[in-house]
């Protein structure tokens, strides 16, 4: 059970959050099919850190991006 740093609420227990998946840089809507394909479907598989989205569902409903160390679960700012 992680302690997740919400930008509004500070560190809160994982049960308050919903996982938003791997963080992506959204292309513009009119970007090409291959741009969207690369962003959505072609991901690297790092063993070190991951950028991910979290949603503070049972809190302030903020969506935010964090970097998490996959080995220690520590959040890096």
């Amino acid at each position: 059970m992680l302690l997740i740093p919400c930008p509004n609420c500070g560190e809160r227990d994982e049960i308050e959050f919903d996982y938003g998946g791997r963080a992506i840089q959204y292309p513009a809507l009119n970007n090409s099919m291959s741009d969207w394909h690369m962003v959505l479907h072609q991901r690297d598989n790092s063993t070190e850190t991951i950028e991910e989205f979290w949603y503070h569902q049972s809190g302030c409903e903020c969506w935010f991006k964090v970097t998490r160390n996959l080995n220690t679960h520590e959040f890096e700012s």
Binding site: A28, L29, N30, N31, S32, M33, W36, H37, L40
Partner: peptide, 11 residues
């Protein structure tokens, strides 16, 4: 117009 899904709908 462009909308969510419009690019990849062209697959």
């Amino acid at each position: 117009k462009a909308f969510i899904g419009s690019s990849l709908l062209q697959r």
